[in-house]
Structure formats: C-alpha cells, structure tokens
Nucleic acid binder design. Structure first.
Length: 350
DNA sequence: AAAGCTCCCAACCGCGGCAGT
DNA sequence: AACTGCCGCGGTTGGGAGCTT
C-alpha cells in the first residue's frame, strides 16, 4: 500500500491554511493546473504535502463550489441518495453540483442524522427506529454504536425491502437491485473511468444531458414513508427517482440558487473542461453535465475573475453593488469568515 | 461577565485501489 | 510477483463560534 511519505516529512505545515497559502495555490492551479498533486506544493512554493493541497483545492478553493447552506431540496436528495448508496459520500456529492463529499458528510453527521432520529427514522437504515429495535444489537442506544450500526451488515435484506421509503415493496431494494436496474441504461449512465465510481451515474437524475423525463423506474407506494417523512415525498420534483421535467430547475422554483447547475458549465475559460471531465482535480471522473449553457458558464467565469480572485490577490473589487457580501459580518478582517462568505455568495450570486 | 457546553466544519489520518517499474 | 508512488475515499478530530447557565 502506498503510504503518504510526504506527510511524514519534516517542516511541512499542517492545520488551517493562511490567505497567502491559498493565494499561492490558486495562482498555481489557475496558471498550470494541478497536474501531479505531489509536485504542486513545490511548484507553488508551499510547505504542504500534495495531499493537503489537493484537499484544500477540492473542498474549499475550486471555483465551482456552491457553498452556503443546503436547501431543503438538497437535503432531501441527500437523504434519498443515502438510502440507496449508504456512506458513499463522493457518489452522493456527484449528484449535487457544487457540493463536496466532505460538505455532505459533515451535513449528514451534524444535522441530517439528528433530524431523522427526531422523526423516528434510523439514519443508517432509513427504517423506523421502532422496527430496528428488533434487529439492532443490544446496547445500541448510545450514539457511537448507533452510528456504527451498518446497513449492509446488520439489516436483513427483507427488512430493507419492506421499508425502503421511495419504492414499492415488490423487488428487493438492495444495492444490487438498484445497480441492475440502472447501470445498464445508456441514457442514465455517465462515463465513469474510475472504478471507484461505478455507481455515480446510475440514477436517472436530471443532470444527464440526454436524460429524458421518465417515470418508468419507480412506482410509488401510496402507503410509503413519504406520508410520514417529507423527505421521502415521492411526488417531489426533486426526487431523484422521479426526475423533473427536462426544462425545470432541478431544485425547484423556490430555490434562489438559480444558477445551481451553472457552476458546472465548462465551455469557456476558467471552467473549460478536459473532454468534458472536471478540470479541477475532482477525482470522481464524473463527466460534467449540462454543458450547453455556455453563456452562464462564461458569466461564472467572469465573476470568478472579477470578484473572487482579486479579493484573494489583495485587490478587492467589491463595491457598493456587492455590499451584501458582507451582510451581517462582524469581523471583516477575519480571513476565513470573509473568504467563506465570499465563496458562499459567489455560489448564490447571479 | 464568564465558565461550560454543544455544534459545526475544515483538515487530518489511514486505508484501499491502481498504475508504473 | 513484488514494490513504490500517487490518488481518492470514508472516518475522525480539533478548534472556533455560538449558546446556555
């Protein structure tokens, strides 16, 4: 197994990134791309390991991140995807443009889990907690043991099948079931060069450009959990298993992130792709969707260059018209706060 | 006001898989 | 086949912010 020898080297910085480090990394990647991550720190003049650089870029610095709070539609989608994929955060993130696996993982651990439990749903199995009491090992009431309570290991397949919230009861709702049902579909399969992500394109989501509206895949059970749990409402247009009409905003009309998908536009400049694959070091190998919207992609590119990069380079161009970037901010000189706010608003500003 | 507690999230860690030699 | 280096993933942690007492 490959060890990260760089991590053991002396004198490499760890912990929070400084603005100067961010600037160096952004400058380097915008100019040269990341190439081999292990060589990035040296070339960029950073005393970090390549792994740290990669993480910083993917989770925080890359321009197509949406950031900001998750919408209800996004949370709903995460719950539904988790019911199918389990803790495959990278695969879940692949279906949420502008969101990182880390972000989703954090949301799940800090918020969604709690919400599900409050509603009597086991976050690991997506079954009602009352049903699980019969299956769960004794002494599993504490948080730790509940968290480690693994769907695949502990839950009888039949139990899953009869309780999966968004499908009917007839076929066994195992991962294999979903795979068999979707993977072979040419309309819904995104090219996946990386074996880690064989599942990433299997859901009939609206991100696939060729995706035709269809209701073939899942029949709803009128007595499903959706009546009890809003997240499982099968009539939702954002339900991945009931794709939205082709020209409809995936997140629904009440979402102010009207440019949600635009962050993945890649026809121009900074967002240019490598044959349609993500150019910024996302390792998921997922072919970028929705590439037809070149104008908006260019707008995002302009925004990045005009507002975000100059700020990082110490040449803030934020003017009166963008004063809302600092709305509610108490300490503007706190770098991370400012940065986060800008990236947050960068994703929402349109 | 301050101490204690909880929550959130950026970042780290360790591992598995893959490719190259 | 064995080894090495790198990438990417999921789990975990540490510290700051906010809330409560």
């Amino acid at each position: 197994m490959g060890r990260h020898s760089c991590c053991y080297k002396q004198k490499l910085r760890k912990g929070l990134w400084s603005p100067e480090e961010d600037e160096k990394l952004i400058r380097h990647i915008t100019k040269f791309g990341h190439g081999c991550w292990s060589s990035v720190p040296k070339l960029a003049g950073l005393e970090r390991c390549g792994k740290s650089c990669r993480l910083r870029w993917i989770n925080y610095l890359r321009p197509d991140l949406k950031r900001g709070t998750f919408s209800q539609q996004e949370e709903k989608l995460i719950i539904e995807l988790h019911a199918v994929l389990g803790n495959k955060w990278s695969q879940i993130a692949a279906q949420l443009p502008g969101r990182t696996d880390n972000e989703i993982k954090n949301l799940w651990n800090s918020s969604i889990k709690k919400k599900l439990r409050q509603r009597g749903i086991d976050p690991n199995t997506h079954k009602p907690l009352s049903q699980l009491n019969d299956i769960a090992p004794s002494g599993s009431n504490d948080k730790k043991s509940q968290d480690s309570y693994n769907l695949q290991e502990k839950v009888q397949p039949s139990a899953v099948a009869t309780s999966y919230p968004i499908i009917d009861n007839s076929p066994p709702a195992t991962h294999e079931f979903f795979l068999n049902r979707f993977v072979a579909s040419p309309e819904t399969t995104i090219k996946q060069p990386d074996s880690h992500h064989q599942l990433a394109g299997f859901l009939p989501f609206s991100y696939t450009q060729q995706q035709q509206p269809t209701d073939l895949f899942f029949q709803t059970d009128s007595k499903s959990s959706s009546e009890l749990i809003p997240e499982y409402n099968t009539s939702s247009i954002s339900n991945p298993l009931h794709p939205a009409p082709r020209n409809q905003n995936h997140w629904g009309s009440n979402n102010n992130n009207s440019n949600n998908n635009n962050n993945n536009n890649n026809n121009n400049g900074f967002f240019q792709t490598n044959n349609g694959y993500h150019p910024w070091g996302l390792g998921d190998g997922t072919k970028i969707q929705n590439q037809t919207n070149g104008v908006q992609g260019e707008q995002e590119y302009m925004k990045w260059n005009d507002q975000y990069l100059p700020f990082l380079m110490g040449k803030s161009t934020i003017d009166q018209s963008n004063h809302e970037l600092y709305h509610g901010q108490q300490s503007v000189d706190t770098y991370n706060k400012s940065f986060q706010r800008i990236t947050t608003n960068y994703g929402q500003y349109s």
